[in-house]
């Protein structure tokens, strides 16, 4: 746990932080609004006392209630991994600014998140499917995308259709639909 990093982050990103900075083991975690992603990432990348220059990972997450985009960053100024969570993307129309202006390599990572979750990264000039076929309509890593042997978690209809078109996720509002939800944290 790098207490110093916490102080620096609080000083630099006071306006953008949503919720407290969490620290556990060798990870520091901040939450921001999706709209603040460009500003925050630029600050983290460029600020002299932060200099998070290596984008370790960019992942989409479906909590069952909303979408998140999670960035893992590394800097030589801190012994911690920094996790930036852009929280609260709508499940019906998840949109998030792209990080490609800072890390060109985020392009494919965002394509993957789009392919798996349907998160639209605004500013990514090549946002198309990367693993699934181009005419595929579902987003497989969403929580309402059930596997054939998920009967136990389904609403009791036995085996359900695996691939569904990207319709607004009505099931998410229905607790009985069996969508797993992340712990309220």
């Amino acid at each position: 746990m790098d207490r110093n990093l916490k102080r620096r982050l609080e000083a630099r990103l006071e306006a953008q932080l949503r919720g407290p900075i969490r620290q556990r083991q060798d990870e520091t975690e901040i939450r921001i609004q999706p709209g603040d992603v460009p500003d925050v990432l630029r600050t983290l990348h460029d600020a002299v006392d932060l200099r998070f220059e290596i984008l370790a990972d960019l992942a989409g997450v479906d909590t069952g209630e909303h979408m998140q985009v999670v960035y893992h960053l590394w800097s030589e100024t801190s012994p911690d991994w920094l996790r930036v969570i852009a929280d609260g993307l709508s499940r019906d129309d998840p949109r998030c600014p792209s990080a490609t202006f800072l890390w060109t390599g985020a392009e494919w990572l965002e394509r993957e998140a789009y392919d798996m979750f349907g998160i639209v990264f605004e500013g990514n000039r090549d946002l198309r499917r990367i693993f699934m076929p181009p005419d595929y309509t579902s987003f497989p890593l969403r929580k309402d995308f059930l596997l054939p042997d998920d009967a136990a978690r389904s609403t009791g209809e036995g085996v359900r259709h695996v691939e569904r078109s990207h319709a607004p996720a009505v099931v998410a509002d229905d607790p009985a639909a069996g969508v797993r939800r992340a712990p309220a944290s």
Binding site: R24, E27, W81, A182, P183, S185
Partner: peptide, 8 residues
């Protein structure tokens, strides 16, 4: 317990 972890 509920939580998140990154291992590299």
């Amino acid at each position: 317990h509920p939580g998140r972890a990154w291992g590299a």
